[in-house]
Simulated assay, not measured.
Amino acid sequence: MRRSTRPLVAWTAVVAALAATVSGCGFLGLGGDAPGDLQVYSARHYDLEQAFVDFEKDTGLKVDFIYGDDSELLERLKAEGDETPADLFVTVDAGNLWNAAHQGELAPVDSEVLEASVPAEYQDPENRWFGLALRARTVAYNPDAVDPAEFDTQDTYAGLGDPKWKGRLCMRDSTEAYTQSLVASLIDLHGRERAQEIVQGWMDNDVDIMSNDILLLEALDAGTCDVALVNHYYYARELADNPDLDVKLFWASQDGAGTHVNLSGAGIVKSSDAPEKAQRLLEWLASDGQEEFVGDNHEFPVNPSVQPDDLVASFGDFKKMPINAEAYGQLNTEAVDLLAEVGYE
């Protein structure tokens, strides 16, 4: 395995940074220095404020933010307990949604709007969280170096362990929820032994590990890597900025289980001081604000009445692997252990 250099951020530094954010003026807010009507803990960073600006215009409610990693924000909620200022928890991973609910941090919601807007497969059976956007983790490749006919259409992820890909692969690091949930989905689909064989196959092909999807796409475009696994919306954002990007997408495993997808979603914090307002925000994001929420970041909407933006729609329809949030949450530790066991950093 080859690993690209990246800076390491200590947990204490992250906590200190978050603490500094809430000292003094309180939050990263849209409504000035005064605390807003709603406080959102969000692991989803990209273009989030614009969607909430529209919510503020529509409702007159001010929204403030704390940003961080999914697991960091969940630990913060648990540490703050009943004293947390958070009203809504927004995460970018179905496993983390499940964990937040399982650990008692999210409140059940009775909402006809949410039931009508979010398909049952993308919400908690006990109504503690609701998916808001879909992101596919699939194959990207350099078309000058790869004929898409080379890919295994039955199990594309496993097929990347074929020796023909040796020295040609680059992937995201093991600390990311995207990597962990992909591996958890492989464990859920194939069992631990087979999933480990798949990841070991990547390692045997001398995979180059990088710290973010943008670096992966840049490596593909530059020809220093032939094939990568990326979230589709990173590709869409790069393509929007550079229409000449020398990278193509391939929908994985279309003759098999389908392409791995994950959820960006939210739930109302159990200790919220404003649960009715938080529910209003959650409902808005799933209905009237859905197009704005997903469009700026080129994600797929969960609301079936909302269409993806034109660029994402141009990627074509594809078969999605069913999302098992409980499995992603329960198998996360096993996925992390598996990655460590094979030396995937």
Rank of each mutant, 00 (worst) to 15 (best):
D82C: 00
E112T: 07
K319N: 13
A325L: 09
P143K: 00
E326S: 12
W165S: 04
Q103D: 15
L132C: 03
Q39E: 12
L48W: 00
G329N: 13
L106K: 01
A184L: 08
V227M: 02
A116M: 02
M171W: 04
C25N: 08
G159A: 07
G329V: 14
D87N: 08
G343C: 08
A236N: 10
L114P: 04
D246V: 10
G36N: 06
R237I: 13
T5R: 06
L216Y: 03
I66G: 00
V118I: 06
L331W: 12
I214P: 00
L215R: 09
V22P: 02
N332V: 07
S272L: 10
D226T: 10
D47S: 13
Y122I: 02
F318Y: 15
A16Y: 04
A136K: 00
P304M: 09
T5I: 10
A43T: 02
V40D: 07
G267F: 12
A266L: 12
F55I: 03
S42T: 14
G201A: 08
L220Y: 03
L97R: 01
E218P: 00
L229Q: 04
G81V: 02
K320V: 05
A16S: 14
S287P: 05
T84G: 07
D37C: 03
L186W: 11
R128S: 06
S185N: 14
E292L: 15
G191Q: 09
D296E: 11
L134Q: 05
G191W: 11
F65M: 05
C25Y: 05
G289I: 04
L215G: 06
Q123M: 12
V109M: 05
G60C: 06
V302T: 14
A340R: 13
L30W: 01
A184F: 09
P243K: 04
A257M: 08
R194G: 02
V227N: 03
D317A: 15
A286V: 07
D296T: 10
D206S: 13
